[in-house]
Simulated scan of single mutants.
Amino acid sequence: MSKQPIHQHIAVFGQAGSGKTVLLSSLFGRLHEPSTIHKNGYRFLADDSARGNKLLQKYLGMKEQAQAPMQDKFVSSPFGFKFVPESQPLDAKKKTSHIGITWHDYPGEWFESEVSSESERNDRAHTFRQLIQSDVALVLVDAQKLLDHEGDEERYLKSLFGTFRNTLLGIKSDIIADNERLEQFPRIWVIALSKADLMPELDAHRLHELVVLHAADELNALRKVLADFVNGDEALSVGEDYIVISSAEFKNGTIDLEKHKGVDALLPLSTILPIQRYQRWNVLRLLPAGLADEKMVKT
């Protein structure tokens, strides 16, 4: 049996201003640099070229004008991308297989405000239903807010995970009908430090220690809420993986895109990590049988 083309989804959760827009623009722009295309041997294309041009414009604004992108407030539509070979014979008869990526961004403003209307409630639920296709989710810890709470990191981290937990509880009844848990749901929840250039001494191991020291109870409570969404919650990883990410170095009015950290790991994180984790869960017989069969076809 031929292998199906791989299409992975990644969901990104972060409060307003945590750097989601800069992160996606930086990732997309870097993969469009001619040197990167030549080195990798593939192009990273947006399914919607107009939206791709907007992302590239934001990247070039950082690169050429040291202008950070404006926040995309309340923008919840997913971004679709695909990898295609750098060059392909024009007379190629067979359709080239490719890897697709869909990036889901849950608007940060929804973490910090009450539902203002029935249409907004429906929009929040619709957005979450879209991103449950993801296998991997990133929960962003904002380095700037950690610095703002220096000496009182516990307050910020507890508030971050607690607010996220309450947001999930608020939409749970709109997502799960008759308490039927979901088989397809993000099962790998990675804690990611955004704006890591502001805290260069903080690596993934130290981030893990910081979160556990100050917010272990809130992280465990978040896992319990997530477990209520998913069928086969033994195959659920929350706060077991950590990464530090910096799109660039922002300093004294300048933006140095060459001084990035962790951005190159985002695509392997969304494509390779879930395959490896699902293989392990499948061996341990922790996954629902139908889901295991579906996921293993892709490996």
Rank of each mutant, 00 (worst) to 15 (best):
Q88G: 09
F13C: 06
Y59T: 09
Y156I: 05
E209I: 03
Q67N: 06
S247H: 04
K54I: 15
L60V: 11
I255K: 07
V225E: 11
E209G: 03
N179Y: 11
V211E: 04
K94A: 11
E258L: 12
K93E: 09
G253K: 07
F44G: 05
D228G: 11
F74V: 15
Q130V: 03
L266C: 04
M296W: 14
G262Q: 00
P200Y: 04
K20M: 09
K58N: 14
R43A: 08
K39D: 11
L236P: 10
L284N: 10
I175R: 07
S97P: 13
F229R: 05
E180I: 12
K73Q: 15
N179M: 08
E183P: 01
L226H: 05
A216D: 13
N220H: 11
V22P: 01
P200T: 03
G151E: 01
L23A: 09
V139G: 02
D217P: 11
E33C: 06
L157P: 04
E258T: 14
H104D: 06
S173W: 10
R124S: 08
V139W: 08
D142G: 02
V297L: 15
N53F: 09
F185R: 08
A265L: 00
L193V: 01
D142P: 03
H205F: 04
S159K: 07
G162N: 10
L147G: 01
D105Q: 05
L207W: 01
W110N: 12
S116I: 05
K158H: 01
D142Q: 02
I6E: 09
D174M: 11
D174Y: 11
A227Q: 09
A125K: 06
A68K: 02
L157W: 02
F161V: 03
D293R: 14
P34C: 12
D123G: 07
S97K: 14
L31T: 05
L23M: 13
L131E: 01
P288N: 09
T96H: 06
